[in-house]
Design a protein around this nucleic acid. Structure first.
Ligand code: ZN
Ligand code: ZN
Ligand code: ZN
Ligand code: ZN
Lengths: 145, 145
DNA sequence: GTGAAGATGTAATGTTATTACATTAAGGGC
DNA sequence: GCCCTTAATGTAATAACATTACATCTTCAC
C-alpha cells in the first residue's frame, strides 16, 4: 500500500473530489522528487509514461492539487512541492533555501498567531495561504561557514 | 527638484555607483506607477521614450536597482516596486493584496527579530531579503465584507 | 591617448503559463 | 438502457516572463 496517495485520495473524497489516474501519476512524480519540482520538469517526466501530456495537462493538474491543499506552489522558485501535512487544516510556512533550493515546511508555528494579529492591527488580513520565507538551510549555513 | 530620484542618486553615489540616464528613466516610470509594475509593461512604457529598449534593457536595469535595494521584486506577482525607504538599512515586509495586487511595505516591524530568532532556533537563517506576505488590504476587506 | 571596466544596444533563444476549442468519461433522471 | 449535464482530458497555438551571447559605446584612471 502507498500511504501518501491513499491519504490524498481520502482527503479528496471528503471534499467530493477524485484522485484520477492522471492526478495520481502527477502526485506520484512529485512525491518521488523529495523536493520542489518545476512544471516543465514534471511534464518531461510525465511524458515518459503518458506521451500525449502537454503544458495544460500538468498545469491543470497542479492547479487542482494546489487548490485541494495537497501541493504548494513556491513563488520564489516557480516550483511545486507536496505538502507533508495536507490532511490537517494548517497554515504552513515554507522555508526556502536560497542556495540549494530545498524547501522545508513547518506547520502552524507558535508565532503565527502573533504575526497574524500584528498585521490585523495594521489593517492587513493575512491569507490562509502558505507563508514563504527565504534564507539558508542548516546544511548550507555550514557549507558557507 | 525631484526628491526620490535625488535620494536614489545619493544613495548610489555612497555605494560608488551611478544613476545613469537609463536608470533614471526606469526609476521614474516605476515611481509614477504608485504600485507594482510588470517588466514588460515597464518595457512598453520605456519604449515610448527610448525606442530601442528591449527586454535586456529593462531586466538589466531592474537587476541593478534591485541589487542596490532601491526596487524590490515581488515573487508572487512577478512584478517590481520601488522601496519607500531604501535609504535605510532595512528589512522590509511586503504586504501583497491578493485581490487588488497592491503592495504596502512596512519597515523593520517589531516582530521581525522574534521571527528571525524563532527560525534560527530551528536551524534556518532567514535572509536579508524582503519578506513577502499575501492577504487582503484594508480596502479589499471592506469590499469583501 | 590608450587600455580596462562599466554600461548599453541588438538578435536570438529559453522558460513558464494560458487560451480556446475538441473530445472523452462519469454520473443522475427517467 | 438512453439522454443529458458536468467533469476531466486532449490538442494546437500563443502569450508572458526572462536570459544568453556578443557587439558597441562610454567613462575614467593612467
Ligand atoms: Zn502545507
Ligand atoms: Zn540549502
Ligand atoms: Zn524596502
Ligand atoms: Zn487590495
Amino acid at each position: 500500500m502507498d500511504a501518501p496517495l491513499d491519504t490524498a485520495e481520502s482527503w479528496l473524497a471528503a471534499r467530493g473530489e477524485k484522485l484520477t489516474e492522471l492526478r495520481r501519476e502527477v502526485l506520484s512524480l512529485l512525491l518521488a522528487s523529495h523536493g520542489p519540482v518545476k512544471a516543465y520538469d514534471l511534464l518531461a517526466a510525465l511524458q515518459k509514461q503518458r506521451p500525449g501530456a502537454s503544458p495544460p495537462t500538468v498545469y491543470r493538474t497542479l492547479d487542482f492539487l494546489v487548490a485541494a491543499g495537497i501541493v504548494h506552489r513556491i513563488d520564489s522558485l516557480q516550483a511545486f512541492v507536496v505538502c507533508p501535512s495536507f490532511h490537517d487544516a494548517h497554515h504552513g510556512v515554507l522555508l526556502v533555501c536560497e542556495r540549494c533550493h530545498g524547501v522545508e515546511e513547518i506547520d502552524n508555528p507558535p508565532w503565527m498567531e502573533t504575526l497574524r494579529s500584528a498585521l490585523a492591527t495594521g489593517g492587513f488580513a493575512m491569507s490562509r495561504h502558505e507563508l514563504e520565507i527565504k534564507g539558508l538551510c542548516r546544511n548550507c549555513q555550514e557549507i558557507a561557514a
